[in-house]
């Protein structure tokens, strides 16, 4: 479903990725972990088509992603990917509901259908009460739940989350992770979570561990400890596929 082959990327004199390779299957929930500066966010941005690697290949559903031009990549991202950032990154001038509706409209959905989808996702994430409020009026936990609703409303095939609970206390974080993972599994979407928090990584079927820009463990489902599957199976067995 998603694949990176020997990616290289530097920022100035800092090497962020130094030959990172990884394979992620459809419907898998994976955690990308590693110390600060190990390249985990850069890997996520490459996989999501937000930045281009200097060398190596990124494939989504068998197609090269890194060689597409800006427009084609934007379209592919909008149609297939949902992204949740650490600080929500909602548009401050818009209400919570408008924030969820906007990408749906951009994606070509009708006004009515978009509004309906937005409302049902806000409801599901228990932030329907905040629909009319602007981001500045929301708590950190509410912001992230709106951001999750925005990422999921377009029914993406892959959800990327970069430290989605990084700004939250432990109970609010637990709630966001529970909803994110639950919704991804329900819709059979692939979920890639970048985190430095082991308790967040424990929601995933597999850990992709990075160190110095390389993947040191969990590059494929077979090497990642637990096989993809239902959370129950993954938890009970801990068996490799």
């Amino acid at each position: 479903m998603l694949e990176a082959r020997t990616l290289r990327k530097s920022f100035g004199r800092t090497t962020a990725l130094d030959g990172a390779s990884v394979e992620i299957g459809e419907g898998e929930v994976v955690a990308v972990t590693g110390p600060s500066g190990s390249g985990k966010s850069t890997l996520l941005h490459c996989l999501a088509g937000i930045i281009r690697p200097e060398a190596g290949e990124v494939l989504f559903a068998g197609r090269r992603l890194d060689t597409l031009d800006e427009d084609a990549r934007t379209r592919l991202r909008r149609e297939n990917f949902g992204v949740v950032f650490q600080f929500g990154e909602l548009v401050p001038e818009l209400t919570a509901e408008e924030n969820v509706v906007l990408p749906l409209l951009f994606g070509g959905r009708g006004r009515r259908e978009s509004l309906q989808a937005a409302r049902s996702w806000l409801e599901r994430l228990d932030v329907a009460d905040c629909a009319g409020q602007r981001p500045a009026e929301l708590s950190g936990g509410q912001l992230q739940r709106v951001a999750v609703a925005r990422a999921l409303a377009a029914e993406p095939r892959v959800i990327f989350a970069d430290e989605p609970t990084g700004a939250l206390d432990s109970l609010a974080g637990e709630r966001v992770m529970g909803e994110l993972v639950g919704a991804a599994r329900e819709s059979r979407a692939t979920l890639v979570v970048v985190t430095h928090d082991n308790r967040v990584a424990a929601y995933a079927d597999r850990e992709i561990a990075l160190r110095d820009g390389r993947v040191v463990a969990g590059a494929t489902a077979a090497t990642g400890g637990t096989a993809a599957g239902t959370p129950g199976e993954a938890a009970a067995g801990g068996v490799s596929r």
């Binding site: 529970g178 082991n198 990584a201 424990a202 929601y203 079927d205 850990e207 463990a217 938890a235 801990g238």
Partner: peptide, 19 residues
Amino acid sequence: LRQRAAHLTRMRELTARKA
């Protein structure tokens, strides 16, 4: 690294149980 993998596997079981 192996100890880390074992700990994380146990954490996955506990996280699933919490649900």
